[in-house]
Amino acid sequence: MRTNKITSDQLRGHSDTMILRLLSEADHYGYEIVKLIAERSGGDYELKEATMYSSVRRLEADGDIEWYWGDESQGGRRKYFRITDKGKATYSSNKSNWEYTKRILDKLL
């Protein structure tokens, strides 16, 4: 893993938005979320289970996402997470905030 401590902290600050992005495409359960984030980052970033669940609880408490039981044919039942309308709005606003920050930092750094 290339990322050092500082970049990994900076990335972790965006966990909520990363999760909202994934859920805006499709419903997922916990392990799928961490796996997709590892895959999409090309293995450069690994979202830890603990960080993911801490984000998920926060998003749930804020009403950005909700969960339902999946109906797995085999194995234990899984909790699927789904984005709410409020969550979609949060995602757009976080994303535009980030683009704004990025524009400024690109000029300054």
Binding site: K48, E49, A50, T51, S54, R57
Partner: peptide, 16 residues
């Protein structure tokens, strides 16, 4: 190793 710092998350959830 994939779990990460779970103690903190557990504490948050419990506090909630």
């Amino acid at each position: 190793d994939s779990i990460g710092d779970i103690e903190e998350t557990v504490q948050e959830v419990a506090d909630l």
